[in-house]
Amino acid sequence: MLLIDCPHCGPRAELEFSYGHEAHIERPKAPEALSDAEWADYLFLRDNTKGVILERWVHSHGCRRWFNVARDTVTYEILAVYPMGAEPPALERKTYV
């Protein structure tokens, strides 16, 4: 049960949030220019990093706002919380073997 620091409401239990998977995936500007394979990549393929990942969360049972999180998938430490639409802050994108 993670403790997630919502940028608007403060630290709250994971129970109040919904997971939004990999962050910084922008919808292609011209979908019709993509091949089926490229489109499928956008739709379905996501990284599965053992280490620090950038992911999205939404505070479903609170302020209902989306935001981004940098989290280590091994230690579950949350390294940063930053606004939706913002660039990730400078941090060590650690990975494990």
Partner: peptide
């Protein structure tokens, strides 16, 4: 939730 996600993200 779907509409909010698209609007916000």
């Amino acid at each position: 939730a779907h509409l909010e996600e698209w609007l916000q993200t």
